[in-house]
């Protein structure tokens, strides 16, 4: 029983960064912009959170700094993919190369050439018996609900979905496609930044080079698996968080499988899930297609 609660608690913990990343993916792709740069934005968020939290002693400032830093990097992606109609995959990849460079540079700059930050103040959590839940887990759930409400119950959501499905149609009705996409990509970066923060100032308490290792891409897989729906993505992240929890729980004990092989589990699981679900999940029609005024 105890180990089940432990597993559940670790699952929630490890799924939280993924949830933020996946929600970022949902909002961006719903507006028609593929955001492969989620990973890079999470890395930036991770370093910003740890640094700001360390220097101010206030983890909430770290959390907000992470969102702002993620959004700033997302601005680059928005400029490239919305204004310049660039190849969104290349732009995202470039951001994924740029971000670790910036993160490490900043880390070494602030912490005397060290590739990892000192221990920073963590965000608070609540303990229920054997179960501990960090506040970020609750914020993530809250964001999922808010995003669902915005996307499906408000006019902004209607417009975002319209822009992601048929931008020319939205344009003819006077909806500014570029503005909607800019906003969604920026929000996407902010959420990814929060995701990075919930790794470095909630799960662990410092920035390291491998703090974010493929989480952004797993989050993207969760977007597909979750059919571009906030709740679907949330559920998918729980599954992926569970596999990571398994790695942590089993890796610590005397399990027969070598730890290196066990570490592959989340990545293998992602591929398996994609094989099973990718064909049944339909992306927004204009996802990844730059909108150029006048072309249809």
């Amino acid at each position: 029983m105890e180990s089940i609660i432990l597993l559940l608690s670790i699952t929630l913990m490890y799924s939280t960064p993924l949830v933020f990343g996946a929600l970022g993916g949902v909002i961006s792709e719903r507006s028609g912009v593929t955001n492969i740069g989620i990973e890079g934005m999470m890395v930036i968020g991770a370093v910003a959170a740890a640094t700001a939290s360390y220097f101010t002693g206030n983890p909430w400032i770290g959390f907000l700094a992470a969102g702002a830093a993620g959004a700033l990097v997302a601005l680059l992606h928005a400029v490239a993919s919305v204004s310049f109609a660039a190849d969104q995959t290349i732009s995202g990849v470039a951001i994924n190369m740029l971000a670790p460079g910036i993160a490490l540079f900043a880390c070494r700059f602030f912490f005397d050439g060290a590739a990892m930050s000192p221990i920073a103040t963590k965000l608070p959590g609540a303990v229920f018996g054997n179960m501990s839940i960090n506040i970020t887990t609750i914020i993530a759930l809250l964001f999922a609900v808010i995003m669902w409400f915005v996307l499906y119950k408000t006019k902004w959501g209607l417009r975002i979905r319209a822009v992601g499905e048929h931008p020319a149609a939205a344009d003819t009705l006077g909806i500014n496609v570029y503005r909607v996409r800019y906003a969604c990509v920026l929000v996407s970066g902010m959420l990814a930044g929060f995701g990075g923060a919930s790794m470095t100032i909630a799960i662990i308490s410092q920035f390291t080079q491998t703090a974010i290792s493929g989480h952004g891409f797993i989050a993207m897989a969760a977007v597909i698996f979750g059919k571009w729906h906030p709740f679907g993505a949330y559920g998918a992240c729980l599954l992926f968080g569970f596999t990571q929890a398994l790695v942590v729980v089993l890796g610590g004990g005397n399990f027969i499988v070598p730890s290196q092989i066990l570490s592959m589990l989340p990545y293998v699981m992602t591929i398996v899930v994609l094989i099973l679900f990718v064909g049944r999940s339909v992306a927004p029609k204009a996802d990844g297609v730059p909108y150029v005024k006048g072309s249809r």
Binding site: L158, R159, R161, A162, E165, H166, A169, A170, L173
Partner: peptide, 16 residues
Amino acid sequence: MLIENFTVTENIILGD
């Protein structure tokens, strides 16, 4: 200029 997976009403009111 219609969004295929929206309803008639959603398409008509979109933007207004």
